[in-house]
Design a protein around this nucleic acid. Sequence first.
DNA 1: GCCTCAGTTGTTAACGCTAACACTGAGCGG
DNA 2: CCGCTCAGTGTTAGCGTTAACAACTGAGGC
Lengths: 343, 343
Amino acid sequence: MTSVPSSSPSRVPAMTDVAALAGVSHQTVSRVLNNHPNVSERTRLRVQAAITELGYRPNSAAKALVTGRSQTIGVVAQSSTLFGPASLLAAFNVAAAQAGFAVSVASIRELDRGSFRDAVERHLDTRVAGIVVIAPVETASAAIEAVADDVPLVMVDGDPALPRPLVTVDQEEGARLATQHLLDHGHATVWHVSGPGEWFDGRGRVRGWQRTLEAAGAQVPPLLPALDWSAASGYQAGLVLSRMPEVTAVFAANDHLAVGVLRALHERGRRVPDEISLVGFDDVPEAGYFIPPLTTIRPDFDAVARASLRLVLDRIEQGSLPPHHVSIPPVLVTRDSVRDLRA
Amino acid sequence: MTSVPSSSPSRVPAMTDVAALAGVSHQTVSRVLNNHPNVSERTRLRVQAAITELGYRPNSAAKALVTGRSQTIGVVAQSSTLFGPASLLAAFNVAAAQAGFAVSVASIRELDRGSFRDAVERHLDTRVAGIVVIAPVETASAAIEAVADDVPLVMVDGDPALPRPLVTVDQEEGARLATQHLLDHGHATVWHVSGPGEWFDGRGRVRGWQRTLEAAGAQVPPLLPALDWSAASGYQAGLVLSRMPEVTAVFAANDHLAVGVLRALHERGRRVPDEISLVGFDDVPEAGYFIPPLTTIRPDFDAVARASLRLVLDRIEQGSLPPHHVSIPPVLVTRDSVRDLRA
DNA sequence: GCCTCAGTTGTTAACGCTAACACTGAGCGG
DNA sequence: CCGCTCAGTGTTAGCGTTAACAACTGAGGC
């Protein structure tokens, strides 16, 4: 395998070293590297040989300085182990690497205005080529609005009201899928344990749930909002649900909440799916091994990552483009947590 | 809130613009920015005023070019939604941001030699100040060995045999804690569902388990290795465990596996903890809401992140330092998945 | 044979910053 | 009162790359 020197003999070779070895000017080397048309095949080969011989690798800082842009995409995300955000980040990293872009992640601890602004500004300092903000709550909006229009920026799970390109999971469709599935299995109505109210994701899911019920002529039960997306909050909601005899179907806004609901119902002797049916959202890898295996909604995080990458890349290459909203539909994954009452 | 211009009026202000406004040379501005001693208070204030007035922000590409190092730490990690790696990455991002460093993540899809090498080289191209490699398997070792000694590089969960600074969770201690806990509750021996054999993490846990049994004079049952860290693999192991009447205590190498084990035992009518006790590893946020709530080992990912950051930073500031191994002890979190047989 | 022109290559000047060194003038000992 | 020191400041030269333009080549048209 090739060795990766750093200062081994004297110093890292620069473009001029390659040029000297190949007997051309450094500009010709630059042309070869950037695939400029007017370079003869003969020189191209000689330069390439010199490059490999020296193990030359372009200095991206110098390139960034002169072009004003680095080959890096800045991501702003909350540091979180929640399955959704974590999956998204992982998928985006892979997609960006394939496109030849480095990814610089500015993790923020809290989803407040200042954190978002600082993170965006840090990225601007390093002259990133584009920015992707995972902006699931309204506090991100102010920070995003303050960014100049000509900065290639796309939001993921952000505010649809902002005039910025946006990629989201189609939350409303996911909620519709979940709710309709329960309705189709003979449940008179469906209760909903929603995520925290500030999250756009959660709001979309609430909307989809509510509209589906209304469209079906079903009664809309009171919402059970969770404080956060955790199992602990789901547990609290489950404790409440377990006390109401008329509850037969529950849609939890994500799988973490569903775990908590499941636990609470189990603890209080309410059997799933026999007495209460449950549908989650996210399809965490363990969902198929819950007790019982959880029917849930699976978003396509890879598709979201690819779409957001494509949007930034378009804007990087072509400058300002009209804001464009992309919505990725999720799918229903049926397992054993829903009982068919029609049987 | 301050606006974040990019090309709003004419162009982004540079150091010379600040200098002109403050009536000093650009070098003085540089000195103010880098807290050089010999700057009079009066000038310092004038420069700072000019900086805020113009909204000047230093161009890090230029700085990186001239110094040869950027204020960025490169991380090589597998793109994964496994709780351990994801937590670590999140914690590292936060720690680095607090220290004023940007984090560039090179996600690799597969843990093979080539992927590791490419990721490291990409970071070297961008002249990162230091590199942190999450290198849980042996294939990473070759890539790491090829890196020049004077590059500040630290491994996390890597090969202890390599002469490089290393930070790990004390796997052996964690496994000891889990095994001893079961032994202490009157179990004659403890079975172990291990992670995939290539992972150093998994090997350490196996070692800790085995040594603890030996030290206690308990019989060491055959190892049940999982193909990967997933619930699906845990489920397979659980199916096997459920068929052996003598099994009363199981230590699963992580919580994802434990979910699968729990599911398999439940499915086959073996009650936890009544018939079989189970301990996991990682303390995923849901662990307290499993059925039953899972007793598990909690690693301190924040501490691992901080320690690895400190090691790179030391090496960045002081050049080559002797390789230093840091091992962070985890703690036992007791919940309801272990039965006391002594009662 | 000379001019033109496309194709190829070289030269020069940035980009925004830091490092090294040069300069200034006040303070102070002799 | 000269010269030394030293804090405070300015000047200059890069860092490694791309962009703009200049300069050379040889082929083809007149």
